[in-house]
């Protein structure tokens, strides 16, 4: 399933804001089709690193390529080949589902035939034929989430970045959403998830735990739990974060 293609390669990524080191020599690779979790407390440097990988900000130093493009010089090419979905969904609540799709299809210059195909796919996924003409604002949270994910994939990107995607939805909706993610991954799309919900991490193929700008651990959830003798990712994280606190304090 993984193949051996590396779609994200990061070597010694450093990002500083003034004296503050947000990312301290991060090194990792992400493989094609992998679900890669990026975990950490608020302010651990997850968002900073993700913004760099999305081509939204430049690193201070380090070698980073995304989909084979260099983040320093080819950020435009990166943006064309990735999808992004944030916690806030970036949907226009006062527009219908179809209008939202048309808008984003326009941004990525999707041909009409392809857009119609995507619309049909979404209709199937949601089991609701009449949904296309509903205002996004009137949809339940779970549907908005699925819609936002479909829109992030509208231009068939190689990688999709999910920024804290599943907070607050009910357990069934949440699992339906993970099913969509597994489906994308099975279709060869790499999924990069940042979250501070530790139970979310257990759904990922591999997990990176960030503490204070550094990578404290990187492995499969099963391996991490074994290494730290923990019964859940939450315990793994607590162990690592406390260790870091002691080192500082």
């Amino acid at each position: 399933m993984m193949g051996n293609g590396k779609v994200i390669e990061v070597k010694n990524l450093v990002k500083k804001f003034g004296n503050f080191v947000a990312n301290d020599h991060l090194t990792f690779d992400v493989h094609r089709g992998e679900i890669f979790g990026f975990l950490g407390a608020n302010g651990a440097g997850k968002t900073t690193a993700m913004r760099i990988l999305c081509g939204l900000s430049k690193p201070t130093s380090g070698e980073i390529t995304v989909n084979g493009f260099d983040v320093y010089r080819q950020s435009e090419a990166i943006k064309r080949t990735i999808g992004y979905m944030s916690q806030k969904f970036s949907l226009y609540e006062d527009m219908t589902v179809a209008e939202n799709m048309r808008f984003y299809a326009g941004i990525y210059k999707l041909p009409r035939s392809k857009r119609l195909k995507k619309e049909a796919e979404l209709r199937d996924k949601l089991h609701m034929p009449e949904i296309m003409n509903k205002l996004v604002g009137s949809l339940p949270l779970g549907w908005k989430q699925k819609l936002a994910f479909s829109i992030a994939l509208i231009h068939d990107p190689g990688i999709v970045f999910l920024d804290e995607p599943t907070g607050g939805v009910d357990p069934i909706t949440r699992r339906q959403f993970w099913k969509l993610i597994y489906e994308a991954s099975a279709n060869g799309i790499t999924v990069f998830v940042t979250t501070h919900y530790m139970d979310e991490a257990e759904y990922c193929d591999r997990v990176t735990i960030m503490v204070d700008g550094r990578i404290e651990a990187l492995d499969t959830p099963a391996q991490l739990m074994q290494t730290y003798g923990a019964s859940s990712m939450n315990d793994v994280f607590l162990t690592l974060a406390r260790k870091a606190k002691k080192a500082v304090g």
């Binding site: 950490g40 407390a41 608020n42 907070g167 607050g168 501070h196 530790m198 939450n234 994280f237 607590l238 974060a241 406390r242 606190k245």
Partner: peptide
């Protein structure tokens, strides 16, 4: 505990 990291939640 919404929006708060795992350590603080604990």
């Amino acid at each position: 505990t919404t929006g708060v990291d795992a350590v603080s939640r604990h």
